[in-house]
Design a protein around this nucleic acid. Structure first.
Length: 643
DNA sequence: TTTCAGTCAATAAA
DNA sequence: TTTATTGACTGAAA
């Protein structure tokens, strides 16, 4: 019994001991677990705190963004109002120009009304047609609510290109260039998007570089063509890409720049020292504003329907509208219009013009549609264009014909068009001058070139295509001839009046040669000079500067004359390579035929220390010329005449 | 800076 | 007077 008891005790003490040990171990494990959990908890707490801080930061940023956007939205809420005011101002400037007063320095216009909107246009580095790099600095005040864009270039440092750049850049988001330095950009993607944006909006690299990046056109081209990877860029190198990225995300900037570009283009063709007037600039900008509105409306039509009408085609139409508007609506003098090649006293709204084209396109695609009114016949006295445009838009929207049209794939037979135009002009005794001024907005010489040497459709640029679209539409216009005849008569009357006036003025001044004195002497290259140039071309179609200098010295010509000759020669040899069988000319201005050129080349080659060489050139040139002629199987005169 | 497309203006030719 | 030619220019692209 005792033994049993003892064993039991032994056993229980052993068991208890073991139990205690186990318990101790358990306690230790639990303590470790607690510590681990505590550490974990601490970590999680820290992490969460960081995360919360991060989220709070992001929230703050987002809140700032929202506030910024709200401010932006608020600042643009008066857009509709401004549009209305611009419209009414436009009406004012057209109907009652005498209320517009122009002051020369700084050029400003004030219209008697309530408040003032200030818009400042500054195009510092743009060449105008009179060849000066002077600043076109137009500042004008438009009566309205409050300043929409205050573009005064307060920070006009040397690196700041100009006040319009401020329009693009002046944005509360401008600190994005600093903040977003950390984020990595896909430079290739950015440049591709920029190129696309510039192309679709018809914005040039020069304007983009000037106003957005503060870089020259050459630099822009380089950046767009060969963007460096982000990682290879320095902080300074990254800046243009950040600006581009920002530009892409800012629709307002893109539209503003597009407007600037159009305005500049609108100013350029007719700019003369005396033309750069404030009211002209105002008209251009007001016109631009109207175009922008029209553009918006057309885009809304485009997006609201299932139309396949391409952006490109709309751009063509809008370009046409702009040109028509600029040539027809600007209340400039008869002489100014003559000088600009746009003699047309009638006034036409852009909506009318676009509607005219749309009607014509409809007519061509769907013969059921009512025959279109002519481009010219829509020339009506100016009236509020909004109502008509609404109607036009409604008709356009409801037309299934246009909705199925893909103008982007439009391809015209340029040769056939020019043949038909020439025939029509001859039959109705209409001159190229009237046709050019009325239908194409070009001079007689340009019309002559277009009709005589039409390029194939595929070789034409957008601008070049526009002329053929206009001619095509003109041919389909049943009233085209009638309108041109009316134009011809009004021109004759105007010319008679002008001639009689100028005779009187000349008599008064007692100086009938004063006009001639202002004429620029024209360089006329002699047969020998042309032969030498032609020979040089045969050896070196793209001559180096040294060759140009040598030729200029040899011939006693300006180097620019020599290089111009090469540019023109290449251009025209390409042109004549493109065009359909050239028109046979009875003789060229220089009286050259192929044979006479060949014989002249042999007989008249200069005998100087390089005589052998020169003779060789001429000989090679004539041989090549003969070869070219044979290949073309053309009348030699028609070929020679181009050069 | 060079090249090109488009254009103009002067002028020759018809 | 009209048309064609051509040297020169502008704006854009590379």
């Amino acid at each position: 019994m005792q033994i049993i008891m003892k064993r039991l005790l032994d056993f229980s003490s052993d068991g208890l001991e073991k139990i205690f040990i186990r318990r101790d171990q358990e306690v230790q494990r639990l303590e470790q677990e607690v510590q681990r959990l505590q550490r974990r908890l601490q970590e999680v707490q820290e992490k969460t705190a960081n995360h919360i801080a991060l989220l709070q930061q992001q929230l703050a940023n987002k809140t700032q963004d929202v506030e910024r956007l709200q401010v932006k939205l608020q600042s643009q809420q008066d857009y509709e109002k401004i549009k209305t005011e611009l419209r009414s101002l436009r009406a004012l400037t057209q109907t009652d120009l005498h209320v517009v007063s122009v002051t020369p320095a700084p050029p400003s216009v004030s219209v008697e009304n309530d408040d003032v909107i200030e818009v400042q246009v500054k195009t510092p580095d743009f060449h105008h047609s009179f060849g000066q790099e002077e600043e076109l600095h137009e500042s004008f005040s438009i009566i309205s609510g409050r300043p929409v864009q205050n573009c005064r270039s307060s920070s006009s440092s040397s690196s700041s290109p100009g006040s319009l750049q401020m329009v693009i850049k002046a944005d509360p988001d401008s600190d994005v260039f600093l903040d977003s330095d950390e984020q990595e950009l896909d430079t290739l993607q950015v440049t591709q998007q920029v190129k696309q944006a510039l192309q679709s909006r018809n914005i040039g690299q020069r304007a983009f570089g000037h106003y957005v990046l503060g870089l020259s056109q050459g630099s822009v081209s380089d950046i767009l063509a060969r963007p460096k990877p982000w990682s290879k860029l320095t902080r300074r190198g990254k800046e243009p890409f950040l600006r581009m990225k920002h530009f892409l995300s800012d629709e307002h900037s893109m539209r503003t720049l597009s407007g600037i570009q159009e305005t500049l283009r609108g100013l350029a063709p007719c700019v003369r020292p005396t033309d750069v007037s404030s009211d002209q600039a105002i008209r251009n900008i007001l016109d631009q504003s109207r175009l922008e509105m029209l553009d918006e409306e057309l885009r809304s039509v485009h997006s609201s329907s299932s139309s396949d009408v391409s952006e490109n085609a709309i751009r063509i139409i809008l370009q046409g509208a702009q040109q028509q508007m600029q040539t027809n609506q600007s209340p400039i003098t008869l002489e100014e219009q003559m000088r600009c090649g746009t003699l047309d006293p009638s006034i036409q709204t852009p909506a009318d013009f676009v509607q005219g084209i749309i009607q014509k396109v409809k007519y061509e695609i769907d013969e059921d549609v009512q025959p279109p009114v002519s481009l010219s016949s829509v020339n009506q006295p100016h009236h509020g264009w909004s109502v008509e445009n609404r109607d036009a838009e409604e008709r356009f929207r409801s037309s299934p014909t246009v909705c199925g049209l893909d103008l982007q794939n439009l391809e015209l037979d340029t040769f056939s068009i020019t043949q038909r135009v020439k025939k029509t002009l001859i039959v109705h005794n209409i001159g190229q001058r009237v046709f050019g001024e009325e239908v194409l907005g070009l001079t007689q010489s340009s019309v002559s070139e277009l009709l005589s040497h039409p390029k194939p459709w595929t070789k034409l640029s957008l601008k070049g295509k526009e002329n053929f679209i206009r001619m095509h539409l003109w041919l389909r216009d049943p009233h085209s001839v009638q309108k041109l005849n009316a134009k011809k008569k009004s021109d004759q009357r105007a010319r008679l009046k002008r001639d009689s006036q100028s005779v009187c003025e000349a008599l008064e001044c007692g100086d009938v040669w004063r006009v001639d004195a202002l004429k620029r002497p024209r360089v006329v290259l002699s047969v020998q000079e042309k032969q030498t140039l032609f020979s040089a071309y045969e050896l070196e179609p793209y001559p180096s500067q040294n060759t140009i200098d040598r030729l200029a010295a040899q011939l006693g010509l300006q180097t620019s004359t020599v290089s111009n000759w090469f540019y023109n020669y290449r251009s025209r040899i390409r042109r004549d390579g493109f065009c359909e069988p050239a028109q046979v000319r009875r003789s060229s201005p220089a009286g050259l035929s192929l044979l006479s050129l060949a014989s002249a080349a042999v007989k008249q080659a200069p005998r100087d220390p390089e005589a052998d060489d020169t003779d060789g050139h001429v000989s090679v040139g004539v041989q090549s010329f003969m070869r070219l002629k044979e290949e073309r199987e053309e009348d030699p005169d028609s070929f020679c005449s181009s050069f």
